[in-house]
């Protein structure tokens, strides 16, 4: 069928674009960190080092090779899982990242599980009763939440839940994680903060996607067939909004990447983002590069996923 042929062509094209983008992004990350800050060997050895020592280290690190060769060497290393060695504590970057990545993924995973169902319900409900008090409250709340920086949401959550109510500890690292309730408490603040940020986006996008389909002639046709509001929204609008909604979820989750940087820092949570922010202050380039690539890959995957969903959800291409 020509429809499905076009479909696969579009999907392959999108994946190709994602790979190309990834290449350009890695190029940008490598050269931004590698070329701009001056001489790495000099930085490592300090101002007092002799020129010979610096030259020796440069040679030992392969820094005297052309940058483009080092880029491809670095890229090949990344593909094989060789992330290089930290400048600061001489440990393999992969080892430094290992557990931290799992911690970050846990945080992101729990946030996703919490925020997706809540957001979908609220977004669809707001669209279904558009213009109602409920809708207006949701709209105002979400627009306020997406308007403020993540750290502000975090700060407010700490003020409310830890300082004024005293329910939860303000920091998660080093907190007691022996029992389930203690674990819950340790995760609660970061997850609450991130969920607020992600959900606000997701609710707005879900609502917009559903409203767009509600305004179509075929939903008006359903009204003129005598369908109830529930049937119009759930039976006619929602099946056609599924693609856009899934797209909205994937796009909103990409905000996790930015949010997680702030949230890990503020709650002292031992994840990749915290590692990276620390690496930035110590100028540990291999570590910065690797962390940046992890974020870019996850961000790109989510965005590509969103695009793929948008393509796959087109009924004209599916049938």
């Amino acid at each position: 069928m020509p429809g499905s042929l076009t479909l696969w062509f579009l999907v392959l094209q999108r994946l190709g674009i994602a790979l190309l983008t990834l290449l350009i992004v890695s190029f940008a990350v490598f050269f931004a960190t590698e070329l701009l800050p001056g001489d790495v060997a000099q930085i490592l050895l300090g101002q007092a080092a002799t020129p010979e020592a610096v030259a020796g280290l440069r040679h030992a690190m392969g820094l005297d090779e052309p940058a483009i060769l080092r880029f491809f060497g670095w890229l090949a290393g990344l593909v094989h899982g060789d992330l290089g060695t930290s400048y600061v504590n001489k440990m393999p970057v992969a080892q430094l990242i290992g557990d931290r990545l799992i911690n970050s993924l846990k945080l992101a995973g729990v946030t996703t599980v919490v925020s997706v169902p809540i957001s979908l319900l609220m977004g669809i409900a707001a669209a279904m009763w558009r213009g109602s008090i409920f809708d207006r409250v949701i709209s105002t709340l979400t627009i306020s939440l997406i308007s403020v920086p993540e750290f502000l949401v975090a700060t407010l959550s700490v003020l409310v839940f830890a300082v004024w109510l005293g329910w939860l500890p303000a920091l998660s690292y080093g907190a007691d994680t022996s029992s389930f309730t203690a674990l819950l408490k340790a995760y609660a603040m970061p997850v609450i903060t991130l969920s607020f940020v992600i959900s606000a986006q997701m609710i707005r996008m879900t609502r917009a996607a559903v409203i767009e389909t509600i305004n179509t002639p075929y939903v008006e046709m359903a009204l003129l067939k005598g369908a109830s509001r529930r049937r119009m929204v759930l039976g006619h609008a929602l099946p056609n909004a599924l693609g856009p909604i899934a797209n909205a979820i994937a796009l909103s989750l990409s905000y996790l990447v930015g949010g997680v940087i702030i949230v890990e820092t503020i709650f002292n949570y031992p994840g990749v983002a915290k590692l990276m922010v620390d690496a930035v202050s110590t100028r540990d380039l291999p570590l910065i590069q690797s962390c940046a690539m992890i974020f870019c890959v996850s961000y790109l995957s989510l965005i590509t996923l969103a695009d793929l969903i948008a393509i796959l959800s087109n009924p004209r291409l599916r049938h």
């Binding site: 002639p217 075929y218 099946p239 056609n240 009924p315």
Partner: peptide
């Protein structure tokens, strides 16, 4: 009701 554009009034999915 029979609409002006049936193409738009039929649910595509």
């Amino acid at each position: 009701y029979v609409p002006q554009s049936a193409a738009a009034a039929f649910n595509p999915s």
